[in-house]
Amino acid sequence: MHPGTTMNMNITRNSNTANFLLRKTAELITFSSNELPKIFNQFSVKSESVEANIIKQTIEECEAPGIGGEEKYCATSLESMIDFTTSKLGRNIQAFSTEVLEKGGTMSIISMKKLAGNKAVVCHKKNYPYAVFYCHATKPTRAYVVPLRGSDGVKAKAVTIYHVDTSE
């Protein structure tokens, strides 16, 4: 990625609008592949449905081991996301998010702003009946905020993380 580079992008909004539960509530709800029938029952989901398969996939991804050098965690509450992030980065942190476009198109990179440090925790929203974020920390990384401008004048901002060591 270099300023002036043009590329076709399709950054779309995640259709899952589920909200986080309070930590006290999230801790009361089973989140384990060993308890799938109980989870399906809690959310009134038929075990052979598309929704059941999505729940199963999310839990299995959360339970799978991380790749070498990756520390991972599935946050089921905002409090647990903050706890994981601060345990990896310390208390002096900044949060960034990609601005979502309503439509894709040709975008040009205006500039790139490197964020300080070589550590980052990245969290991705997963499909689940309530908000679950797959968070992971790998070192070393480089993080950038990248302002973008579309051929139609639309502006957006992307956050990009580079894994310096991709051997795993």
Rank of each mutant, 00 (worst) to 15 (best):
V50L: 07
T76I: 03
P37W: 06
G153K: 01
A143N: 13
Q42L: 12
K157G: 06
M9T: 11
K119I: 03
S108N: 13
L22E: 14
G69A: 03
E102Q: 13
Y73N: 12
K103L: 12
K119F: 05
L78A: 12
G90F: 11
Q94V: 13
S15L: 10
S80A: 06
V100P: 05
I39D: 00
V154T: 15
M112A: 12
C74F: 05
E102P: 12
A75E: 04
E168N: 14
Y134L: 10
L28E: 15
L78G: 11
T6W: 04
S49T: 00
I39N: 00
A64Y: 07
A95M: 14
P129V: 01
L101K: 09
V164Y: 05
I67M: 13
S77E: 01
R23G: 03
S33K: 00
L21H: 06
T98V: 11
V132L: 05
G66C: 00
N127G: 14
I55R: 00
N127K: 10
G105M: 04
I11G: 03
V100C: 03
H163A: 10
T6P: 03
L22I: 05
F133I: 08
E63M: 01
V122P: 09
E48R: 06
A137Y: 06
A116H: 06
N10F: 07
T166C: 08
G68S: 12
V164F: 08
G150N: 01
E61A: 15
K125T: 10
F133Y: 15
L148T: 00
K72S: 01
N53L: 06
S111N: 10
D152P: 08
A95L: 15
L78Y: 10
G117V: 11
E63C: 02
A137P: 02
G66W: 02
T141F: 04
N19Q: 10
K139Y: 14
